[in-house]
């Protein structure tokens, strides 16, 4: 796999190639025909045993990734990063420097791939879009009253349209966890559908905020709701609550995505976000992807890591792998 930015497939005009939207076979579309049918479907999904799922990911975490495979994994991880800033204190200046970092994570080393996307609030999309023009790095915008999602559908859709109007290539929406936990599944699904409609050609990432869903069974059900609603990506977390992304949650989401493919639908990607700060963490996710769903998901179109400080750790580890000596955090720019 080549990860050089220069070789990244870029459409004329600088927009990253858009894979066809996730497909939903007719049989699956049926299950969303009524609240009752949807409930039956979601409760008919095989359960997830918490202890078993956690043991599986703990076992995979003991994989020892060394030398060439580590280098590959670091570059793969860099290319999958959605470099993110979602602070109330964000400014155009902060976003501009983040975009520069996204294009060339290490300006002194052109072999370092650029990241997959920059992820910002809607009002900063235009800034990012301008900075990233021609780079192949996508602009993702959170929307739908991120992070809580506590707003009317009209406001949420306006939020989405705002981001799209500013040029967002990707939209990261949040589901209504309150409605989900109340069992108003069709309502959750229809909201995703509405955002999907609004997104047009932009890619839709659906944030489940798994830390608020309490169980892996709920993560699996919410994953299916998002996929039935037309998600291109399942995303774990806003990064604003704890726990955020965890390996078992990612396992359950990857399995759901694989099941959709097996049912003739998809493909749907997975984005893990929140709390992934070290190369070791990132590699554990890549191992999980590798051994759960395999090659098809080992690319930025199918797997993303939402992060900010992770990128520098990847760069430091990359330097260590290449030069043999441990790097200093001052070797790389903060943003």
């Amino acid at each position: 796999m080549s990860l050089d930015a220069s070789e990244r497939h870029v459409e004329p005009g600088g927009r990253p190639a858009r894979v066809a939207p996730a497909f939903l076979p007719a049989a699956l579309a049926e299950v969303a025909s009524s609240d009752a049918a949807l409930r039956r479907f979601l409760h008919g999904l095989p359960g997830v045993d918490q202890v078993g799922a956690e043991l599986r990911t703990a076992a995979l975490s003991t994989r020892s990734i060394k030398s060439a495979s580590k280098l590959w994994a670091i570059d793969a991880a860099i290319s999958m990063v959605d470099l993110t800033t979602l602070e109330g204190a964000d400014t155009p200046g902060k976003v501009r420097s983040l975009c520069a970092k996204a294009r060339h994570p290490d300006p002194q080393d052109p072999t370092v791939p650029s990241v997959a996307a920059v992820c910002v609030y809607p009002d900063l999309v235009a800034t990012a879009k301008k900075e990233l023009a021609g780079s192949g790095v996508a602009v993702a915008s959170v929307a739908t009253a991120f992070p809580s999602g506590r707003s009317s559908l009209a406001v949420k859709l306006a939020d989405v349209r705002d981001a799209l109007a500013a040029g967002a290539d990707e939209v990261d929406m949040v589901i209504d966890r309150g409605a989900f936990l109340q069992g108003r599944f069709l309502e959750v699904l229809e909201e995703v559908r509405a955002v999907r409609e609004a997104c047009g050609a932009a890619r839709l990432k659906v944030i489940l905020e798994t830390g608020e869903l309490a169980t892996y069974d709920n993560v699996r059900r919410a994953s299916w709701l998002a996929m039935l609603g037309g998600a291109d990506f399942l995303k774990t977390s806003t990064g604003k609550t704890s726990p955020a992304a965890t390996l078992p949650v990612a396992l359950v989401m990857l399995e759901a995505a694989r099941e959709l493919t097996e049912a003739g639908g998809g493909p749907v990607g997975v984005k893990v976000a929140g709390g992934i700060r070290t190369t070791k963490d990132a590699i554990r996710y890549l191992v999980l992807v590798n051994e759960t769903v395999g090659d098809a998901w080992l690319q930025p179109q199918m797997f993303r890591i939402g992060a900010s400080s992770l990128l520098n750790d990847l760069l430091m580890q990359r330097a260590k792998q290449r030069n043999g000596a441990y790097a200093s955090s001052d070797d790389f720019s903060l943003e």
Binding site: D49, Q50, V51, G52, T215
Partner: peptide, 8 residues
């Protein structure tokens, strides 16, 4: 002797 996971 029987074993069962404890989880939610």
């Amino acid at each position: 002797t029987a074993w069962h996971p404890v989880g939610v």
